[in-house]
Amino acid sequence: MTTSTGKAGAMRVGALLLAMPLLLWLFLLVILPHVDLLLVSLRERISYGKYEFSLINYIEFFVEPLYWNTYVRTAVMSLMATVLTLMIGFPVSYYIAKVMRGKGKNVLFLLCLIPFWVSELVRTFGWMILLRESGVISNFLQWAGIADGPIEMLYNDATIMVGLVYTSMLFMVVPLVSVLDSLDDSLIEAGYDLGGNAFTVTRDIVIPHAMPGIASGCIVVFMLTLGNYLTPNLLGGKDSLWFTEQIYTQFITRFNWESGSAFGFLLLVLSSLIVWIGLKLSRQTLSETVS
């Protein structure tokens, strides 16, 4: 009896030791900074180096329409980018997973990966070179006689959207390809055989099967987009207005860590809330989606 409990105890210690890196990581790098962030967000600067507990940073957010607008705008744009990425990514993934065979499949998949061999900054600058007034596309259009003068394609919401969708595509395509790969071709054929057409087979068979992949792709893309800083900032120019930009500004240029922390927390709440609603609507669970 005693030996067996001893053994079990040793096992438990072993398991704990094994879990130690994970627990340490979670605690030191995830939980602790967030607790600190929360504490910072709940204080107000009184004078030089003097702070007091206060909800002023949160109140400020709700009272000042400027922050609200940015917040809502970021959420809406991120949702739009997610939907657009899904709408473009789904046919692409379907093509890769179900239509292409053999070598071509890998090549296409790699093509989706290529943009990620360079950093996001370089990618975004690439877009800027293409789209700016004195850029490649503008010059081409003038050369082809389609445009009379230089065209500025940067610094508007459509450009931000293009950049966001481009940046997010891989994160949608990877889970979708893997989930569509796991769909037995004969299910699709059975759908046709029983009288379905492209639309009904996609709606009744392919999409329900792909739902976990769609959900996980959308969650990742949404989070990345919501938390993106470079793309909206560089492509959006003077009207970019992204909430992460607001957080950066509060922390770095305003030295206002308190309201920056509060904004950070509000962003966390927003993304959690929207992901939760999305999971509810698609009747997926987080554990299903993650696995």
């Binding site: 037995d184 004969s186 054929e189 059975a190 046709y192 055989d193 029983l194 379905g196 009744d204 099967h209």
Partner: peptide
């Protein structure tokens, strides 16, 4: 295939796992 008066029972049956039995049978 969706317009031919033939139907096929697939090697691995290809029943739709996202539907129940009645929905599978009712699909066509």
């Amino acid at each position: 295939p969706n317009r031919r008066p033939v139907n096929m029972v697939f090697q691995h049956l290809a029943l739709f796992p996202m539907m129940n039995v009645a929905e599978n049978v009712a699909y066509g």
